[in-house]
Amino acid sequence: MNDTVLIRKIKQREEEAFSHVIEIYSKLLWVIVGGVLSKSFGYLVQDVEECVSDVFIELWNHPEKFDPKRGSLKTYLAVMARSKAINLHRKRGKENIIRLEDCRDAEMVPDNASTSTDGWMDQENYQVLYEAIRQLPKPTREILIRRYFYEEQPRDIALKLALPKKEIENRLYRGKKMLLDILSDVEEVNP
């Protein structure tokens, strides 16, 4: 089922289309939501299930809100998942971890929103970035994943990992340098 057909069927609320969407996007949404509603904050696996299912429910209830001209269905669902997870987190009174300015949803994102990779990383190359980060030692690996894939602030990462903020910043600095080395090697192999 190609995207055009899928979107048409979603707008017509065809159950088969929704089954397909759940099948292919559940894992991605799980990772997005799970990074926000983490065990260390007292969330349960049911909270993550609930939040992910809410994304699909929202799509069922309001398929017209998805505008293909603004991006892919995948991106739309990912934005919604992140937004719902952050909202839930905020509702539960844990907003000290995720700040208001971090909350972005489909309506709040500016046209040229910068990513936390500070412009030094092409957004399309996240697979390469991820592989590079995997080569880093612990806990630098998780720190960089949280920084670049969940766009968490250093102080929030510090709270989550129970490490001093200064250490997080140092590891980010050193990790970034190591990443540049790894990535330049990659570039040499694949010019």
Partner: peptide, 11 residues
């Protein structure tokens, strides 16, 4: 405004 792409999408 385009939807903001999530870094995890490309994994």
């Amino acid at each position: 405004r385009p939807y903001h792409k999530h870094p995890l999408e490309d994994l």
